[in-house]
Design a protein around this nucleic acid. Structure first.
Lengths: 218, 218
DNA sequence: CCATCTTTTGAGAGTTACTGTCATTTGACA
DNA sequence: TGTCAAATGACAGTAACTCTCAAAAGATGG
């Protein structure tokens, strides 16, 4: 995560660590890679917006991005990853681990989730909405969204395990992480359902209220 | 079996409704269909046990079941459906609706889930274990398992909505159904993880304990 | 039992997401 | 500038589906 390893004196960049990480000095190669990745995504979203997800083929996307289809799969393992991949997990883990470890886990999560979402709303609200709409509408995406590789479950599990200082997660932790991941994901989907009209922080609050109260009143 | 003619006076068959439903007079056509379906599944499981899920092609399954590949897809919309399709939802819904409607929903669920699982263990423990092992090991299956079409989420949602006597599920209900579905599915997967050694009823109890107590102690 | 209608099936061709290989290009670095 | 490693493109292949159409088999009315 620091300089490209190119031991060639990266210029010191002060500021918050995330910024630093994002604006780290990149070699020409890596700048190109990043640019290609962005181009692919941009062209893909454009085509998908025009024609729909299923009607847009990888070949079309590759053509629009001016790369070969082979190259597409070097950037995204599957077509679904175009929509499902993000890079927030490390930040989430950090935010969660930063909370006092004697705080109830649900509370830690609520704070971390709300913090993350605030950040997303500020910086890429539109993209988030587009993505969630797609996940909402395309069955293949909805399914994959819940896959353990891509979803927050592993994240919660990691944090729970580390907080408890045990080597392996317990049964209870697995259940908690799974339920929590499903609930938070569903919350964002419900926000997309309202086309972003609802206050997502409020929705998150209501979600955690259900969980904290043991599903009371149902 | 008898009555090749469903339209005219099916013989009254007393007994429990499920039995009746299952042993209903079937036309020759329908009996054949059922048999084909069973053959496909049996041959598929056999091949999968020998070669693994990914290495077993639909063409192989079709050949083993002595049908054409086209026909395979008339019986199972996708290869995944071979493993993921079951017919327990109606019984689950009934069991849930049969519980007193002033009972806390979580308690109703626990009872219904345990009842259903007891039934499964008695009648098809091995098949359940095989299926859950597959779901556990094959990413594509794990992913699809969580898809709203195949999972218990819709089921819980239906019951919650009907119990409340409202036309549309509320946000809270959606969250609850989602979390609950994820938790129960994960429980069965964890049971498969132990190769069926753990007492599944005990696992279910522990799962509901986590949910009822608002994830306390984590 | 026959004639007709409907459902089920098989054959085959086509699409698309993905995989693997190999030669060529391009940036890194000395 | 020359050498090496990473990135790319061209190409061939696989397997899960989809569609269409004609043949086979069960259902139905006489």
């Amino acid at each position: 995560m620091n300089a490209t390893r190119p031991a060639t004196a990266p210029p010191a960049a002060p500021g918050n660590p995330i910024q630093v990480m994002l604006e780290a000095p990149l070699s020409l190669r890596e700048r190109k890679k990043l640019k290609t990745r962005q181009t692919i995504r941009r062209e893909a979203y454009r085509l998908i917006a025009e024609q729909g997800y299923e009607n847009t083929t990888v070949d079309q996307i590759a053509a629009a991005a001016e790369i070969s289809p082979s190259t597409f799969f070097r950037y995204f393992a599957t077509k679904e990853d175009l929509v499902l991949t993000d890079e927030y997990d490390p930040a989430m883990i950090e935010a969660l681990l930063a909370r006092p470890s004697d705080e109830p886990f649900l509370r830690s999560c609520r704070e971390a989730v709300i913090g993350m979402i605030r950040h997303l709303l500020e910086h890429e609200r539109e993209e988030l909405l587009v993505r969630m709409r797609l996940v909402r509408d395309v069955p293949a995406l909805r399914a994959r969204m819940m896959d353990s590789a891509n979803d927050p479950r592993q994240l919660y599990l990691t944090v729970l395990t580390r907080r408890a200082g045990v080597p392996e997660p317990t049964f209870t932790m697995r259940i908690a992480a799974t339920a929590l991941a499903a609930a938070t994901t569903e919350t964002v989907l419900q926000w997309a359902e309202s086309e972003g009209a609802e206050d997502i922080a409020d929705l998150v609050d209501r979600t955690f209220a259900v969980l904290e109260n043991g599903f009371a009143g149902l």
